[in-house]
Each structure stands twice: as structure tokens, then as C-alpha cells.
Design a protein around this nucleic acid. Structure first.
Ligand SMILES: [Zn+2]
Ligand SMILES: [Zn+2]
Length: 209
DNA sequence: GCCGTCGGACTCTCAAAGTG
DNA sequence: ACTTTGAGAGTCCGACGGCA
């Protein structure tokens, strides 16, 4: 069904990844589906509901349901240590395929740089004209005395070169301090009927709700 | 139409095992 | 020390049903 905050796209591209996704007609090939991107930590509400979260706090979904105050990161378990494993199968040459995404990038990273930059587009999608180092994200910037709203922002993210190889800066000290640049605002926070009634079209040419 | 629930496919992370 | 592998732990898609 349609467009809810949970599944806003007609195709499986996370909205924070490909904000200016091209209209369907220029999506060329029936490509293998682009990789789904996950947030590092879903908030407890989204986790409970098994729904998509985002990196902003409060997250889009909590804001939508008016429970922004309850939007907190879920606790992640520590991985078990000391688990013994059998010998590995060597997969070299032709059979090697697992993490070899299509490009011979830096081999030290399990996290493909492609997943970090806007330069990477899933197969079948055209590049979008975003400045390097930016990708779009829904980010709520709370202002004192202001009701929660749904501004769209372009969030500046750390350049890939500034990210420690292999890790996306999950350590607290590696966390970039992004600055946010408002590009435009979705109209509906002040619209009557928000959030439940009317759909609208974002300038991204994607229907959000 | 919206919402909540949930099974399971998918993704991410990182310790163990392997390599030089 | 560095790289590779693979599985644990997590996210969230998509189907479904209930309700207004
Ligand atoms: Zn959330
Ligand atoms: Zn939340």
C-alpha cells in the first residue's frame, strides 16, 4: 500500500541515501535490488515495531507519532567472545565473491566506501547531483519552544577520507560533528490534517505521505 | 485510508582463523 | 600486524489483519 513513513518509496531505496532518486522511467535496467541500508542503532520504538528508523533523534517515525521524547537508542548486546570456529574455506580466484562488491576498492574495509558516499549509486540508478560529502537525510533540528516538525536537511557527513578505514566511525571519538544545511521544508507541519491526511510530493519527486 | 504486528530476508559488525 | 571469513546480532521490508 502506499506511502507511509515506513515505506515511502516505490522502490527499495532508502530515502536518506538517494534523495533525488530519478523518476522510474529513467531507472534503466531491471537491476539487482540495491542494498538496503540500516541505521547503526534503531530507536526502541522502531525496533519494537520492526520499522525503519533513522539516525536523527528523535527519529522520523517517533516524530510522526508524537513520541519524540521516547526516542532513544536501543541497547545492543555485546557479541559473544570465545566462540570457536572451524577452519575457513579459502575462496580465491573465481570463487571469491563475498564481499567483493563490484569495485576493487581498499581491501582493508568490510564496509565498502561505496556505501558511504553519494558517489555510489546502485546499479540502474543515475548519479544524482549532490555535492561531494553530502547526502540527504531527514534530520529534525529541535528548536526551543518549537513543535516537532519535518524539515528536510542536507546533512554534511564526514568525507570518506576522514573516516577511519574499515569502520564508520562508530567510536564516540570518531563521530563526525555534522553541520546541517536546511534546503527546504516539507510543507505539512503547518498544514491542517498533518500528519494523517494528505499526501504531498516532495521536491525529491517522491511522494512521502 | 491508517495503524500495529511479525516472519524472515537482508545487512552490519567484529572475533576467530588465516596469511605474510 | 594485517587480512579474510563467517556467523551473531541487528534492522526493516512487506504481508497481513484490525479499526475508523
Ligand atoms: Zn526510530
Ligand atoms: Zn524514534
Amino acid at each position: 500500500m502506499s506511502a507511509s513513513v515506513d515505506a515511502p518509496y516505490p522502490f527499495p531505496v532508502p530515502h536518506y541515501m538517494y534523495p533525488f532518486s530519478p523518476p522510474p522511467q529513467i531507472v534503466a535496467t531491471p537491476s539487482p535490488r540495491p542494498k538496503r541500508r540500516q541505521v547503526k542503532n534503531a530507536c526502541t520504538n522502531c525496533q519494537k515495531a520492526c520499522k525503519k528508523c533513522d539516525d536523527a533523534r528523535p527519529c522520523l517515525r517517533c516524530v510522526k507519532y508524537g513520541v519524540g521524547e521516547e526516542c532513544v537508542d536501543s541497547q545492543r548486546k555485546q557479541r559473544k567472545k570465545g566462540i570457536k570456529r572451524g577452519p575457513y574455506k579459502k575462496r580465491d580466484g573465481r570463487g571469491r565473491a563475498v564481499r567483493a562488491l563490484d569495485s576493487p576498492g581498499p581491501l582493508n574495509a568490510h564496509v565498502s566506501p561505496a556505501s558511504l558516499t553519494p558517489a555510489a549509486n546502485p546499479p540502474g540508478y543515475l548519479p544524482v547531483p549532490l555535492p561531494p560529502g553530502y547526502y540527504a537525510q531527514y534530520t529534525h533540528i529541535p528548536k526551543p519552544g518549537e513543535a516537532p516538525a519535518y524539515p528536510y536537511y542536507i546533512a554534511q557527513v564526514a568525507q570518506p577520507s576522514a573516516i577511519p578505514a574499515g569502520q564508520e566511525g562508530e567510536a564516540a571519538n570518531a563521530q563526525p560533528q555534522p553541520s546541517y544545511y536546511p534546503i527546504f521544508h516539507a510543507p505539512f507541519p503547518t498544514q491542517p490534517g498533518y500528519p494523517h491526511s494528505q499526501s504531498f510530493i516532495t521536491p525529491f519527486n517522491n511522494k512521502l505521505r
